[in-house]
Each structure stands twice: as C-alpha cells, then as structure tokens.
C-alpha cells in the first residue's frame, strides 16, 4: 500500500524535525538544527530494515518515491514565491560566488581523482 510508504516518510520527517527542534533548544540556536538531515538518516535506516526483513513492497516504495520525484517541482514552486526583485540588488554577488565555487570544486575533483588513480588504476 502506497500510504504505508508516505506514512513512513511522514513519520521519519516528524521525528527528524522534532529532534531538530530539540537540538536547537539544547544548543540555544532559535532554530531547527539539522531536522531534515536527521529525517533523511532515519529514512535510510528504515529502508535498510524494511529490505532486510522483506517488508519493502513495491506499493510502499511508490509511496515514498512519488515524493522524491516531486522534489524538483516543489523546488520550482518554492523559487516562484521568492522575493527575487529584492535579491537582484545583489546580482553580481551570486554570479561571482557561483563561478568561484564551481572553479574551486572542479580543481579539487581533478586533484582528488588523480590521487585516487595513482593508488588503484
């Protein structure tokens, strides 16, 4: 049943967000600390357990995967409600950050993959 997957996803999200809130209170940062990340780890653990005990049915998977496939459209909807007009004042900053970050990351990939190559290939 697809609803089992969606309910599992909901449970992981709720527990993760609640733990994130608790962590935020404990750290005195008026914020949810890593709730989404904790929820993701819970879901990975839940999937492992389901697969091991033979409970990972196609219906259950569908109930989770539908939402995974929806994440790009949801991000599109999120982008469409941002205050872009105000953000454009900082336009050059976004461009500069994007170019510098990509250049540095590509350089690091070149460095790391060459290091790996000398040991194994």
């Amino acid at each position: 049943m697809a609803i089992y997957g969606t309910a599992l996803l909901a449970l992981c999200t709720l527990i993760g967000v609640a733990l994130g809130e608790a962590l935020g209170m404990a750290l005195h940062v008026k914020a949810n600390v890593g709730g989404v990340g904790i929820a993701m780890m819970l879901l990975i653990a839940a999937r492992l357990w389901l697969a091991r005990t033979g409970r990972l049915t196609p219906g259950l998977k569908l109930g989770v995967e539908f939402w995974a496939f929806m994440y790009i459209p949801i991000v599109v909807a999120m982008a469409a409600q941002q205050n872009v007009l105000a953000a454009l004042e900082g336009g050059p900053m976004a461009v500069l950050t994007g170019v510098v970050v990509v250049a540095i990351c590509f350089g690091l990939v070149a460095l790391l993959s060459r290091t790996a190559g000398t040991h194994h290939d």
Binding site: V17, A39, R47, E65, M78, Q81
Partner: peptide, 29 residues
C-alpha cells in the same frame, strides 16, 4: 513573488516549508 498573483497563490502551499522538507527527505530513499 508570483504567489502574490491570486491565481498562483497555491504556490505558497506547494513550495512551502512543509512539502519542501517532506520531498527532500524522500530523496534519501
């Protein structure tokens, strides 16, 4: 943004924090 146009007000729910976090967690699967 576009969600201030009445016809597109639903973007607020679709792209809001609740569904956004829900969908992001789902990708971990």
């Amino acid at each position: 943004g576009l969600a201030d146009v009445p016809a597109f007000a639903g973007l607020l729910l679709m792209g809001g924090a609740m569904l956004r976090d829900f969908a992001i967690v789902a990708t971990a699967f």
